[in-house]
């Protein structure tokens, strides 16, 4: 399959509340989780999706929500799911994967909802004050059910 990385941004725009990058195709436990090293990449990725999304909504005119689904470059494809609650689930994959929307849906409804939303130990709002909004947030999803579920689901798709 070849998934490279998985990112979640929340509605406090620019706040990346989860990132998981796989570095070795052959090893599904390689790579980083919620790493400071990914901060810059997260901001760039966020910026790219934000800009293209806002332009395409302007192009499609008043009163409709036209959501970006994929962005392809010469080397990779980004797959995006935007929820009405402002969450963005983003997967970066090789070009062979044309449509991973079902994977994103599963990540949202079977993993995020089950292990974050239905988990009373976890926040649903990861910005705890105004200073943590607008991309300045730093809190991440770290609960072990979520992390383990992501590994179990996406791990096999890494190679």
């Amino acid at each position: 399959m070849a998934i490279y990385s998985f990112w979640i941004f929340d509605r406090h725009l620019g706040n990346c509340i989860f990132d998981r990058e796989w570095t070795l195709k052959s090893n599904q436990s390689s790579g980083t989780t919620n790493s400071k090293l990914n901060e810059d990449t997260a901001k760039l990725l966020y910026g790219m999706v934000f800009s293209l999304r806002s332009i395409s909504q302007k192009l499609s005119g008043e009163g409709s929500h036209n959501e970006i689904r994929t962005i392809s470059t010469g080397k990779y494809r980004a797959h995006i799911l935007c929820t009405a609650s402002g969450l963005w689930f983003v997967l970066l994959s090789d070009l062979k994967q044309e449509d991973l929307s079902h994977v994103l849906r599963y990540l949202y409804s079977e993993i995020y909802v089950k292990t974050v939303v239905h988990n009373w130990f976890s926040p649903v709002d990861f910005a705890e004050s105004d200073s943590e909004k607008r991309g300045q947030g730093f809190r991440k999803i770290r609960n072990r059910n979520f992390l383990a579920s992501v590994e179990r689901f996406l791990g096999p798709m890494v190679n």
Binding site: G63, S64, H65, E67, T83, A84, S85, L87, R105, Y108, S109, Y112, V113, V117, H118, V124, D125
Partner: peptide, 17 residues
């Protein structure tokens, strides 16, 4: 604030106009 996510995941509805 939690129920809304459950709702959106089940219905996949976009934001209302």
């Amino acid at each position: 604030v939690r129920l809304i996510e459950d709702f959106l995941a089940r219905t996949a509805l976009p934001r209302c106009d």
